[in-house]
Structure formats: structure tokens, C-alpha cells
Amino acid sequence: MTNTAVDSPLLQPFRSGALDLPNRLVMAPMTRNRAASDGVPLPLMATYYAQRASAGLIIAEAATPNAVGQTYPNITAIHGAAHVAGWRRVTGAVRDAGGRMFLQIQHGGRVGHPATSGLTPLAPSSVPLPGTIFTPGGHRPAAVPRAMTPAEIRATVADFADAARNAIAAGFAGVEVHAANGYLLHQFLGQDTNRRTDAYGGSVAGRIRFVVEVVQAVAAAIGPERVGLRVSPGGTANGMDEGDTDAIYPALVDALDSEGLAYLHVVHADPGTAVFQEIRRRWRGVLIGNPVLGDTVPDDGGRRAGERLLAAGADLVALGRPFLANPDLVDRIRLGAPLNPVRDRYLMYVGGPTGYTDYPALAETLVPAP
């Protein structure tokens, strides 16, 4: 098989602030459910991430900042000494392979269940997740969350800051605060999920307050140059209905633009939309765009979609499933080589090496011509 080398801006180095990256391809955070039941990363995870160390930056999968923030079984955490030790093995393996890592910190909010965490979920308001949620005993009806008290809000802000300190102690270069995809911080942003009448609800200024306070606390704990923020404007994951997307995100960007953060990460970024263009216009720092690629790996690995984002003003491009199925995605894009497809979706969330660390590298898939 003959491959054609690709000269893409995605393959160019990038440097800004604390980010010194060999290319502009970011491995997006993807929950893979390969941790122990208590959230401690398992040794297999070190292999998985080290295989993908050629990414310009790896953003490791969501880790919870406290016990009540747990979403699903076997997700990672970063609130205890054992979590720090487990993650240190992962970051060490990636560093030895030449990679760089941030850790995403995520609190599930209403996306949680007592059958998983042993605790009643907390949320901005007592509005349950629509439908069912997966637990160790299978799918169950979602639990009704308890509306957070002001004291619990303050404690959660502190938990995020402590989790960020733990991440740095575990060897990460920085953290990404997860305010997207229908989890706790995103729930505060939405009109449907946030029905509070105090200072953390109601107006746009009230609904962005919790996110701003979390980001500022994390930045104060480890330095703003080590902190990224992930958002999903208009996102409907986990039953979200923001209601006034065009007002929320300009206000949030304006509130945080001067903080000097490492980056802003926009999920399902579409360069043709007004909200993406407005975010780019207002955000003076590094912008990561995560394009919509669907459930399959495109034949170019997301290259064309990524290049469109760069042309529209993104600085870096985050890809998920292409990296999931192709540990050496950077080389495959550079060489114009064929890509592995994602296998059975079930294998994405089931423990063990199958569908996790056994995707073949390019050298294993190309057969020399006779």
C-alpha cells in the first residue's frame, strides 16, 4: 500500500505560555471505565496513555474531586492519596514516552447514583437526570438529586482546588475544569437544571458564578497557566437544555478572559456557528476546538475538520475516537496512512485490554508490497 505524506498545520509545533507542544493535536478526555471501583487508576491505564504519547497534549479522562461527584462505575478520582499514587504511575509512563498530560476534573452533579457512590447526588436544583443511569447493578432510574446548600457550594469549590493540587502532585502539567456535557458545572449554567433563586441562579451572572468561582479557585491553587476550561455551548448531553446559550458563553468568556488560563476547550466546535465565532472574538487566550466527527473514525482521522477549525481561529484541535482507535494517530495523519476503526462501542466502557490497549500500531497493520 502506498501512502502520501501530508503537510498539515495540525502537525506544526505550538508554544504559548506553559504549553510547549510538538504538534497541535490534542487527545480529548474520554472516560474508559478502566479504574478500580474506588477510582484508583490501574496499571493498564499507564500502557494506554503511553501508547498515545505522540499527541501534542493528552487531556486525561475525567477524575472526580470528591466522592459524591462520581458518575459511573470504575471512573477515576483525584481526591485521595491512593488516587495520586495511581495517577503518578500513568504520568510517569507518558513522560518516559515523551508526552505531556493535563487531567480533567469532573463532578457529575445529578449524573450519579447512590448505587454507585453510596451517596445522594448533589446538583444546583432537585431536577433529576431524565431516564436511567448505569450503575454497578445495571441501568436504574435516575436518582433525584439534592439541591446544594451555599455551604456545599463553597466546599465543592474547595474540593476542586484540592483536586488540582493533587493532580500536580501526581505529575500532571495542569488540569482541565469540566464545565461541559451536562455535568455539575454545566448544570449550573442551564436554565432547566438551575432553578435557584439565590446568588447562584436566575440571571446569567448568577448561573455562571459557580463556574467562575471554581476556575478562579483552581487557578489560585496551581497557577492559571496550568488551568484549562472545557465548555459545550448548546450541548444537550445528559438531558441539558441551556435555554440562552447565546447569552451564557459571552458572559462566561468575559468573566474569565483576563485570568490568564492555559486554554479554553470548546466541545462540538463548529467554525460556521455564531457562538464559536463570538467565543473566538472574545477569548484572547489559547482556544482548543473539538470538532463533531460522529461515531466513526473518518478516513482522514479528523484532519480536514481540524484544519477548518485552525483556519477559523482555533489554536489546537482535540480529537477523541481517532486517538482511541489509533495510538499513533499523529504518524498516521502525517503519512496519510489508513486508520483503525473503532470496534464495538461496548468495549469503550468495559474493563480490560480488549478495545483499549490492543489497537495495532501502524507498523503492525501495513504489509510490505511483494
Rank of each mutant, 00 (worst) to 15 (best):
48 Y>P: 03
97 A>L: 07
90 V>W: 03
36 A>S: 13
260 G>A: 01
71 T>M: 11
237 A>P: 09
238 N>I: 00
129 L>I: 07
82 A>T: 13
213 E>Q: 13
85 A>C: 07
148 M>T: 10
144 V>C: 09
323 F>W: 12
254 D>T: 14
54 S>A: 14
163 A>F: 10
55 A>Q: 01
313 G>E: 02
288 I>E: 03
355 G>M: 09
196 R>L: 05
196 R>Y: 00
205 A>Q: 15
50 A>K: 11
122 L>N: 09
28 A>R: 09
159 D>E: 14
296 T>G: 06
195 R>P: 01
100 R>V: 11
106 Q>G: 00
142 A>H: 14
357 T>H: 00
245 T>M: 03
343 R>A: 15
89 R>M: 13
284 R>A: 11
231 V>N: 02
31 T>Y: 04
120 T>D: 15
131 G>A: 07
24 R>Q: 03
310 L>Y: 07
74 N>Y: 13
323 F>S: 12
301 G>D: 04
273 T>V: 03
262 A>P: 11
190 G>M: 04
81 A>Q: 13
60 A>Q: 10
204 V>P: 05
278 E>T: 14
230 R>N: 00
108 G>V: 08
231 V>I: 15
28 A>Y: 10
285 G>S: 07
78 I>N: 03
167 A>V: 03
177 V>Y: 07
169 A>S: 15
287 L>N: 11
231 V>Q: 01
289 G>L: 00
230 R>P: 00
135 T>I: 09
250 P>L: 01
167 A>H: 06
212 V>H: 11
138 G>C: 05
222 I>A: 10
68 V>W: 06
304 R>H: 14
121 P>F: 07
201 G>R: 05
312 A>V: 06
